[in-house]
Design a protein around this nucleic acid. Structure first.
Lengths: 242, 242
DNA sequence: ACAAAAGTGTTGGAAGTACACCCATGA
DNA sequence: TCATGGGTGTACTTCCAACACTTTTGT
């Protein structure tokens, strides 16, 4: 066709990191890592060329002719930050004619969630920075808007099981899961009611293991149950069609 | 950049039409228009060129360099079917490398809802056909999949006010609104409980008018209330950024 | 023994469901 | 007056938030 429209992908990758802390120690670690527990962070990359040179922006890049959109998201993410999230979900496609000053660009934006330990793989430095998601403003292009929309979507449609699987490890206590939800939703949750809601949701199941080494009674460990099915588009998180 | 990727838009436009009927008479008209009341229909267009020549497909076309994605959706929709829906919402972006045999095409798909009277504007003929949405299979490209996803999204996230505004007229009785919901959800709803749920939702408000000319007690007419705010991305349905 | 978190029970209110019943109109 | 849908009342159930309470561990 030759329309002269370029197709890019960008990714909003979110991780829960202790306020003021470094990637690597995540929720469930020593307390005192901040006034309100861990907060949502996302990696930004500094642009090294025009337009918006030296501005911070979401990691991303051009889609290659032979790769799927999700694959392009994964590839550009790895190239710019070193991150390789297991889960990627399409967020929205932005295509205002004037959103890039150099020409027509349509950006397919993905959202990913990573565990705090994986977040450490993003080599922070001169050109990569972890930023508190709610404070990320002044970004290049329309990325401010993209980030706000990604946060809105995360907070309004999350499932117990999925958020557990993606933000924390394979095995987790209900307190850890609750702390994740409290950090995302930015409000306290009743431990008793949270327990019952999670158990009734059917998205997690108890194991025989317990978390020892804590300072008090060892909690039972749970794991995310595969997938309830039928509540989401079948291809999300997996691969095709993307 | 010159990636050789073409950007298209397609639109899933849904209307409630009586089973076996013609566009123009909609829900709330004479009964006997089918065993189970009106059903979701969508217009399909016959492809006049390769690939998939003579196959039925979703209306759509190429995005022009200077128009927004939503505008491209509106324009191609009007060109192929004559329809001009007031509401357009982005559904998903499909971009498998092999989804078109002639080259790399990324399709941004929009969903629209139209009133049955507006649906009559789609000049049905040799190359435009209204089809029962749940029965639409064998379409060109990956459009089967697109239609199924659009139906899933409509059925899982609808609001009283919005569905009223888009599927039926400015003024409507609660019975008409209930019939719309019953058709979309494919199950009967209790009239008394439906009334209370709608009234409590705050998305519709009563007027002083009544619908006369019916065969029985004239029902009060309601209208959709502007917008609750904060429950959806701000730009959907309006225009930019899209 | 004590502190602190794990885990259970109970209660009251909101919201959803089923269904009985009265009201208003056209034929 | 009667059939029919419009509209109201009410009891029952289910869900959810608040919070008191018991259990189990490390120190």
């Amino acid at each position: 066709m030759g329309q002269g429209i370029d197709v890019a992908v960008s990714t909003v990758i979110l991780a829960l990191l202790p306020t003021g802390g470094e990637p690597g120690d995540g929720p469930g670690d020593e307390p005192g890592s901040g006034p309100g527990g861990p907060r949502l962070h996302l990696p930004l990359v500094r642009r090294t060329r025009e337009p918006h040179r030296d501005c911070w922006a979401l990691p991303g890049g051009w889609v290659r002719p032979e790769e799927s959109l999700a694959d392009a998201g994964r590839r550009t993410l790895a190239e710019t930050t070193g991150l390789r999230p297991s889960y990627l979900e399409q967020l929205y496609t932005f295509g205002r004619p004037d959103r890039s000053p150099t020409g027509r660009v349509v950006s397919v934006v993905y959202t990913a969630l990573v565990r705090s330990r994986e977040a450490a793989a993003a080599q922070e430095g001169e050109n990569v920075r972890w930023s508190v998601a709610d404070d990320a403003t002044g970004l290049a292009f329309d990325h401010d808007e993209v980030v706000r929309y990604a946060l809105w979507r995360l907070r309004t449609k999350i499932e117990y099981g999925s958020i557990a699987r993606h933000f924390i490890g394979e095995r987790f206590s209900l307190s850890q899961l609750r702390e994740v939800h409290e950090s995302v939703l930015q409000r306290r949750l009743d431990p008793a009611n949270f327990r019952r809601a999670v158990e009734a949701s059917g998205t997690v199941e108890p194991t025989d293991e317990r978390l020892t080494g804590g300072r008090h009674r060892p909690p039972r460990l749970y794991r995310a149950v595969p997938a309830p099915h039928g509540a989401a588009p079948p291809w999300e998180g997996a691969g095709p069609p993307a």
